[in-house]
Amino acid sequence: MGFITERKKKNGAITYTAQIRINKGGIIHSEAKSSPDKKFLQHWLFVRERALAEHGALEALKHSGTTITAVLEWYEKDFDGMTKFGRTKLATIKQLKKSPFLAELDATKAEASDFIRYARERRASGVAGSTVNGDFIWMRSALRSARLARGVNVNLQALDDAAQLLRSERVIGPGKKRDRRPTLDELEALYRLFEKSDNGRKSKVKMRHLFLFALFSGRRQEEVCTIRWDDIDERRQGVLVRDMKHPREKIDTFCYFTDQALAVLKNVPRTDEYIFPYNSKTVSERFTKACKLLEIKDLRFHDLRHECVSWLFELGWDIPRVSNVSGHRSWSSLQRYTHLREHNPHNKYAGWWVLDELFNQ
């Protein structure tokens, strides 16, 4: 596989060149080293040939210089159109591809210390540990894809070792589950503000009924803005939520309405094929702006879904019945709410004037 040639210089000095040439499995590799010391080159040749004979060594050389960013781009190209990456996953991959550190890091030579440095720098910039944990999850998926689908000899163990240490030191980890629930005073303040803005001439996004529908149906903001009137089944008192988000896939899911959600819909005028024909990001921005104006702290639109599920359990509903409204396919996701059924059933919204107004219209 390797050989040494001798060459005499013009001054009479002797120099030697050791050469290695390999053509194996479609991989062509060659390298050489020169020295006046023949014994040194013999030793180098012996050591280098053994190293190249190891499993995956040639594959690593073939892809040497392939950055983590390049691997992420491959991952998007190879699988995104096939599996429909979710919004969070796509956003994470987009952010990772912009990292100057990962754009320089060789995927075939990266060590655990490199990934640890990346995580520490991200945390030092103010990013939450749960966000960086997500970075590691999708980096691992991309690296694993590169190894299996493209034959790149990446060192997954280095990433796993780094993640294990970082999690044990609590530098990264899963995010805390939110328990923020709006009070009746906060909901009334939002309702009055949205009612006022909806009646204004400049308002293009009507939020009053939209936010109440989200509150009593448990629908996410993307779902609220994509439900069509034709998706509603009045006989069964429910709706077909198309491409509903689930942990591993998006699938059409039929969800039942609470009486309160149905009452809201009966007050919504039909002006479009969609019930709420608005951009979901605009809805989120309007809700956030309203909370800021009213000085309502740490309340997000998604918290309305959490509030709906919590309220149903407080009414005494069991997991199967709640899941029929929320759309959860896995009942384990609802286990954290079951403590709410341990108390006597009660209705937080009993006698609430906003609902009385809706049912009496």
Rank of each mutant, 00 (worst) to 15 (best):
F359H: 12
D272N: 15
N279P: 00
R300Y: 10
Q361F: 07
C291E: 09
R286I: 00
L45Y: 09
L159K: 07
T253E: 06
F211T: 13
E285P: 00
N155R: 13
F46G: 10
P100L: 09
Q237A: 14
N133D: 15
S145K: 00
S333C: 02
V325E: 01
P182V: 06
R220A: 11
L143V: 12
A124H: 11
N153F: 02
M139K: 00
Q260K: 14
M244Q: 13
H63I: 01
L102R: 05
D106C: 06
H63K: 03
T108D: 00
A13D: 09
V264E: 02
R286F: 04
V205W: 00
E223T: 14
E249V: 09
A163S: 15
N153G: 02
R117I: 08
R140L: 09
L41M: 11
S141E: 10
V127P: 05
D135W: 01
F257V: 01
Q164K: 15
L315T: 06
A290R: 05
A263T: 14
R21E: 08
N344Q: 14
A110P: 05
S64E: 13
D161R: 12
T258L: 11
Y75A: 07
T282H: 06
K98I: 01
A53C: 03
E31Q: 10
Y278V: 05
N199F: 01
G134T: 11
T66F: 03
S197Y: 03
K97Y: 01
A263W: 14
P269R: 01
F115V: 11
P320I: 13
D80R: 12
E54K: 15
D356Y: 00
M244N: 04
E223H: 08
I22W: 03
V354L: 07
A91T: 12
V132G: 05
R286M: 03
Q221I: 14
E111H: 03
I319A: 05
I93Y: 04
K98L: 08
T226P: 01
W311A: 06
T69I: 15
N133W: 07
H339K: 02
D37I: 00
L299F: 13
L293S: 10
M82T: 10
V152R: 11
R48S: 11
N279Q: 06
T338E: 15
K196N: 12
M207L: 06
V205M: 04
E357N: 04
L294K: 04
W331S: 08
L72F: 08
F287P: 01
R286C: 05
R208T: 12
A149Q: 12
R48D: 13
A70V: 13
D80H: 15
I22C: 04
S113H: 06
A263K: 14
K84T: 14
K109Y: 02
K109M: 07
R341M: 09
L159T: 13
D243N: 14
D114A: 03
D37Q: 01
A70L: 10
K266F: 04
Q335I: 06
E188R: 13
F115S: 02
R122T: 03
S326N: 13
H339R: 04
W311V: 08
I251A: 13
D272W: 03
L159I: 15
T69R: 10
A261M: 05
V152G: 05
E223F: 09
F216R: 07
D259S: 12
V309R: 00
Y16V: 02
K89G: 11
L212E: 01
A162V: 04
I116E: 12
R305W: 07
R122L: 06
P100R: 04
N347T: 11
F136T: 07
Y337Q: 07
R123K: 12
R341G: 02
E31P: 08
K206E: 02
